[in-house]
Design a protein around this nucleic acid. Sequence first.
DNA 1: GGGGTTTGAGACATGACTGTCTCATACGAG
DNA 2: CTCGTATGAGACAGTCATGTCTCAAACCCC
Lengths: 184, 184
Amino acid sequence: MTLDRNDVLREAAALLTRRATASMDDIAKAAGISRATLHRHFAGRDALIRALEELGIERFEAALDTARIEEGDAVEALRRLVAALQPVSGFLAFLYGENQLFEGEEVNAGWARLDLRLTALFRRGQEQGNFRIDLTPVWLTEALYGLMASAAWGVYDGRLAAKDVEYMVLELLLGGALRGSGDA
Amino acid sequence: MTLDRNDVLREAAALLTRRATASMDDIAKAAGISRATLHRHFAGRDALIRALEELGIERFEAALDTARIEEGDAVEALRRLVAALQPVSGFLAFLYGENQLFEGEEVNAGWARLDLRLTALFRRGQEQGNFRIDLTPVWLTEALYGLMASAAWGVYDGRLAAKDVEYMVLELLLGGALRGSGDA
DNA sequence: GGGGTTTGAGACATGACTGTCTCATACGAG
DNA sequence: CTCGTATGAGACAGTCATGTCTCAAACCCC
């Protein structure tokens, strides 16, 4: 019954994704522990948010590893990535939204690392001749984040079916909305 | 020198886009008025946020009208829309982010109206044979929001150049990332 | 210039959240 | 069973944002 630090983080993420302004008390209740215990795990709200961010980055990075995004064909790598990202998409959506809230503060090194690997993926795809060169790797990275987050939110409030998300994100990102060579 | 209610809203939007948790005092300072006057314009924080939402929806709707999205070729209509949306993209990004924060509350009728017109646009495009039918209009609408918001944030913190946004959003949304018939 | 109106500055009470602390209790290992 | 540890409940002070109010100063129209 004793909840692990990570279990608490998981619950916190789930709640904060829906309600970014939830109080420490709300979070504790959501995790099924007392506020006192929550404070024993995390020195304060800031510490909790930072831990949350670290966990999210860790998960994200693990997905990049699982998908082996630096290997082989970039398009296939991207397909594997979106699939691997699926289970953490809610988490990602939270972090992506949260990120906009932080005043300049210290730019997180973890995020920079993720950005780097993603832009490298898109750049590789361009060099392999698969990705358009008129759309910058930075934009494609940003777009991936945005589409994943949009999809996650859409699922959260029932506008989208969870099972469709992977296909929708991937297909739109790769082929766009127009009928043409992009679609099957 | 006297600031109009809408001027205040504009400043409030600009600030809140960057820092969603800004206090009434911060907002007043940013608008160059006192907190007392801010309260004279808006009964409270909630009222201000609601007014902000209404203004945003109004602007968005105006863009839909300007772009005449129900007329002619759906692809061309979408091009016009993204162009018309450009000046309000920051505002849109704020509202899109904010929207995730509100617990179920009363679903805003304005947003529903916008969603309706957008999904109708994409559906028309599908019927005209221009848009893929394996991506639902609801998803395409969601994706448009997400891409616009991503782009706006990217511009805000310097990862993207403002002048490129229109092209980037439109091209990705229409043609996707793959090289093929989609690009010029 | 005068009188009505709007504004800014700030005081004030209130409420919410935070972080810390205490203490009694439940739990688990030996 | 017993002792050490972790937990929950709650008290507590401190901080911050809010919303209301007052009053003096600035403003504007006539």
